[in-house]
Structures are given as C-alpha cells and as structure tokens.
Nucleic acid binder design. Structure first.
Lengths: 222, 222
DNA sequence: CGCGCCCGTCATGATTTCTTCACGAGGGCT
DNA sequence: AGCCCTCGTGAAGAAATCATGACGGGCGCG
C-alpha cells in the first residue's frame, strides 16, 4: 500500500514514515508541494497525506491542482489551523479529510483506513479553467474570492462550454443540452442573451468566452 | 447535462428520472434497447444509464453496438445479477461502470459524477500539411506561432483542400462543400475571392495553394 | 396576493463576413 | 502575335450575425 507523505517538517515527517511503515504501508516522503506534485503524477498512490503549509506549493494549491488534472487519489490534509473557514477551504479544494495538529497517530491510521474504504468517486467533480472553478455537485462557480450566483441556464451553458473547451460548442449543442427541447431557443437570440449574462458574471475570472461566428461559442483561459 | 436512461421498468424509470432531474440533470427515458440506440445516435449525451435486461436489445448488446459504432459516451450498466462473470461480461462489452440492483440513489449519483469526470472523448484528429495545422474541434489553424482567424467559409474551403491534398478540388466540389447549394457562387467569382483571402492568411505556412486552370485548386506543401 | 427572480423576446446598434463589381494580368490556342 | 477566357485582387455595398439594454410574463415564495 503506497502512500505519499508531503511534509516539510523533518521531524514530523520521519515520525510519520516510521509509523506508517510499521503498519505495513510503503510511504514516500517529500519535503514540498512541487515535489509532491511530480511524485503524484509519476507514481500511483493509494492515499496522499499532505501538509497544508509547505514550501513552494501549499497543500491547498497542490490538491486543487491535482483535482484540476483529474487525479482521484484520496487526500488527507494536515493542518495546524482549525476554523470552519479553513475546513471548508480544504475540502473545497478537493481534500477528502482533515486532521488538526497535533494529532493522535491512531486517529491518523483510522482516517487513512476510512479514506481507502471510501470510493474516491464519491467526491463531487469540479470543472476548472483559468481561475474559474465550477463545482457540479453544489452547482457553484468560484474564482478568486468571488462566488457569483449563476442561474440554472447559465450554469448549464457554462458547464457545456467547459466540457468542450477548448473545442467549440455550437448553438445546436447548447440548445440540446440546456433545454430539454431542442427546437426552442433556436430561431430566437435566447442563447446570445444568456451568453452575454454569463460573460458579465464571469468578468474577472481568468477566462474568455469567444464567439465563433456562425457556429457557437468557445471558452478559453484568458 | 443530458442523460439517457434506458430502463423498461416503468416504476424504476420514473424514480430515476425524477431523482436525476432534481439533481439538475436532463434525463431522457426510453423503454428499450432499440429506442436507446436511436436516441444515442441522434442526440449527444453526457452519460447513459442502461439496464442490462431490456426488450428488443439488451443493455449488453446495446453497449457492444455503441462501441462498435465508435460511440464514446460513458455507460453505467444496471443489473440485478452480480457474479464475477456478469461483471466481466458487462465491462468487456464496453460499459464503464456497473451497479447492482437494488442500489442506493446516492451511489448512483456518485458513479455518474465519476463517469463524467473521465477524460473527454477523443477529439477528431487535426488535419495537417507542411507547417500548417487545422484543428476541426476548435476551428483554428496554426503554423509556427501564428494562429490566424479564418472565417467559416475560408475554413470550409481549407478543410476541403486539405482533405483532397494533394488531389485537386474542383469548383463544383468547393461550392457543394461550402454552400450546400451548388448553384450559387458558380457563375460569380466568389470562390476566387475567398481563395485569395485564404492565400493571404496562410502566407508563411509551409503550404502553397495552386490554381488548376479551368478546374479548381490544390494545396501542397511548399 | 404581492414580490422578486429568472427567462424569453424585442429593438437597436455595431461588427464581421459575404458577394459583387471592375479592371488588370497572365495562359493557352490558333 | 493576337485573342479569348480564366484568374487575382482591391474596394465597396449588402447581408448576416452578434451584443446589449430594456421589457413583460411566469413561477415560486413569503
């Protein structure tokens, strides 16, 4: 059972590695987020234990990046902080569980086992592009610290655009996916209007919705 | 997010549709394999939920046929049976996941999300010649570090030329390909004008559009 | 029942793209 | 060489397409 341990505190790292090894795990210890990222992309781990505060790339950013790249490896986040906001931020970024230092090693083991049991697929997927992130489970978008409220239609269109990106979503495609009935909204400029609204709400996210004249739209990182 | 639900049990079908709709999906319910097949070939779905046992065409056969026809729509198979042999048969036929009845609706949702997260389907390959590259999915051309914007008509003509290359595309062919009505743009010099624009926009790509006097055009590596 | 939110439609203005036109430059054939 | 036809190209008008602000209806909620 291979485990990645991303922890910059040497002493804590050593303790973790020794303890895990005794339990029959095979831990790899890395000292910073960048290294963790490259290990994760290269090897296959059953679980990753990630410190929140790390050099080069924080645990939060690391997890967000993993998820953006489609990794489904369960992540247990370690942190010294514990406010509801922290917790939400961690879980939102894509961590699966959360442990506050100092922690009991037995509890760490218990959570590890829980993580392995839990199907990784149970976590809501997120589509992301640029600064923009769309959480399909909660149907919310985020970018920077803003979190604009999108209506159902806008969300549907944005979702389609993100899925096709950088490909083009043509008008028929949009109509079919967003409106049950395809025939609607085809002779009218309904789609255009929604696109305009979407654009204005997404101003400032690192994305640009380009119009492809005569065809449809495409979303790309700005 | 459009989903196909192929389920002959009316009660279960209704439950699925209602539940999915509440989650923001747009489900289409069909009662048998044949209908499912025709829906699948006509509309674009993000995922298909397919019952194993269905009238006319079983889920297994349906999936096998979809895959044979090149469909890459992720399939979640529902079944009452659960032996290793069944599981293998289902996955072998091309299903992506597998759920045994009776199942928890939450788990169904989780698996749906997991399926949607799968890497996007293979995109149509790009056409290329010399330095020039035409990506039909994004409707963009590239050569070197440039990326000129082509209009729809120009793109259509270029696509045809590239597909024919090094053969000749005659004027009728171009007219038919770009304007589905051939009669137009035949007595006029419209085609010539577009060709001129195409040439100027592609200056510097390693290609040359040759005129075949009295016939049409041909594109070749310069 | 009033209110707010969301959606579809309309009207208008701006922009891009298409087509036509005019004229000049070869090509090829006699 | 002379002639006819095809093609190249710049410019300009015409047409298509899109952006956007505003409006009214419908629906859910208090």
């Amino acid at each position: 059972m291979r485990i990645l341990v991303a922890e910059d505190d040497e002493r804590l790292g050593a303790v973790l590695v020794r303890g895990l090894r005794e339990q029959g795990y095979v831990p790899d210890l890395v000292p910073d987020g960048e290294t963790a990222a490259s290990y994760l992309s290269f090897y296959q781990y059953a679980v990753a234990i990630v410190d929140w505060r790390m050099p080069k790339l924080s645990g939060l950013d690391l997890v967000a990046r993993m998820r953006r790249e489609g990794s489904v490896v369960p992540v247990l986040m370690l942190t010294a902080r514990d406010t509801p906001a922290d917790r939400i931020a961690g879980l939102d970024a894509g961590a699966d569980d959360y442990l506050v230092k100092p922690f009991d090693f037995g509890e760490l083991l218990a959570r590890l086992r829980a993580l392995q049991r839990r199907p990784a697929a149970a976590r809501p997927p997120a589509l992301a592009l640029g600064e923009l992130e769309l959480d399909l489970a909660t149907r919310q978008v985020r970018f920077g610290d803003r979190q604009p409220a999108l209506t159902g239609t806008e969300l549907g269109i944005l979702e389609l655009l993100l899925r096709r990106s950088p490909g083009v979503a043509d008008r028929r495609m949009i109509a079919v996916h967003v409106w049950d009935d395809e025939a609607d909204a085809f002779g009218s400029n309904t789609i255009d209007v929604h696109l305009a609204r979407l654009r204005s709400k997404l101003a400032g996210a690192g994305v640009r919705i380009e119009t492809v004249r005569g065809i449809g739209y495409r979303i790309v990182a700005a």
